[in-house]
Design a protein around this nucleic acid. Sequence first.
DNA 1: AGCCCTTATCGTCCAGATGACACAAATTAC
DNA 2: GTAATTTGTGTCATCTGGACGATAAGGGCT
Lengths: 228, 228
Amino acid sequence: MISRDHATLRLAVDLAILTVRESALQVLTITRANDPFRGQAALPGGFTRTDEGIEVAAKRELLEETGLDGAGMHLEQLSVYGEPFRDPRGRVVSVPYLAIMPDLPVPTAGSDASTAAWRPVAEVRGTLAFDHDEILDEAVERARRLLEFTTLATAFCEPVFTIGDLRAVYETVWGEPLDPRNFSRKVVNTEGFVEETGEKRLPGVGRPAALYRPGGQKDLNPPILRTR
Amino acid sequence: MISRDHATLRLAVDLAILTVRESALQVLTITRANDPFRGQAALPGGFTRTDEGIEVAAKRELLEETGLDGAGMHLEQLSVYGEPFRDPRGRVVSVPYLAIMPDLPVPTAGSDASTAAWRPVAEVRGTLAFDHDEILDEAVERARRLLEFTTLATAFCEPVFTIGDLRAVYETVWGEPLDPRNFSRKVVNTEGFVEETGEKRLPGVGRPAALYRPGGQKDLNPPILRTR
DNA sequence: AGCCCTTATCGTCCAGATGACACAAATTAC
DNA sequence: GTAATTTGTGTCATCTGGACGATAAGGGCT
């Protein structure tokens, strides 16, 4: 007994690419060139192709939209959005991914990327096409949790960074100030979070800070919990 | 410039329904009646229908396979499985859900459910059709994490339960023994985890235990972390 | 009844983690 | 030189969680 009422549909991947930039949590948005929602901001994304895996499609879109090779990059899958009428063109199910990257120059490469721009999350919230506002909210919430339980904060930083840089990431993403001294102690004492390079950076002002690179550990144990 | 190479595909929902039964973590499996993988064990599931949301489809399948109304039940979406050739019949992308329920009688209602049976996870691991082994592994891992950070352990229990019942859930899912005294202290002192009923249960042996029902809180703060 | 066995529950102790914060160190701005 | 700024070390009180002793409350047994 096989019901033939099987929905056939297209699968989209959408990207919530976050960075910390100018002391704010920012997201990469594009301006839609076509209907529906022409002219409105949206998350970059596109359809999966025949015989293409989903994460492969996400990395391809990432490359097309930002010119960046996501080969080594951490892509975190968010929950699927599949409301029947979420896309006026027909049944489209979206698999959104969260990507995290350092503050790189505004992307320019790729045909679709001409309208791509970093914009503060606080500013775009509530203005995106489709159900991308929900996706963005989920991405931000996921990022906050990832900072608690993984070392992924280093993905927001350049390959080499100071503890102060790392703290700025936490403070910006969480939206709350942290004690520099306790934070430093915590990070340095956590095995595998960061690794000393021996170098120091001269900031504009203040004492030079030791430079670190990401340690080998992915999970953070014990976690760095927010006080709620 | 629109590429027309858009994969059209069918969307399946699969259910990893877990329970604690006979001191073991068990999963509801069906025996496939049709090719491919005819006669082999698999997770219950089916295709989404036209104009049907994904979670709605999951709850419908749950009802069809187990005869249980998943209306109030917590369904946790796992990560999407979309390898191009994961299903020999064509492009099928699966959205798996984790469901948790108390030890109910073996389900019998529903046409597809005639072959449904609880089986220990340890026993079925590695024997499932499609990529359902991977899905099951992810479901178990997710369940373990949920016990750490949410009050979802109560979903494994009857509507009214003892702290000992709850501890048995943790011990079975985590696969490690816990100190009854510390566990009790932790649970009772955590605001909103459990709520006293005032009743007691007379077990076959030992001192009567106070009965509780689930508290209002969903998140567990602070979490109950496994010692790793 | 009296004893033992079992499970539940309370209390104590201590090690380790965390928050608050004083203070020293190393640089730039003036 | 002095002030300002940021980094980093140290201290201390508090809280949490693990280990575990002791007591409570039932049933089964003799």
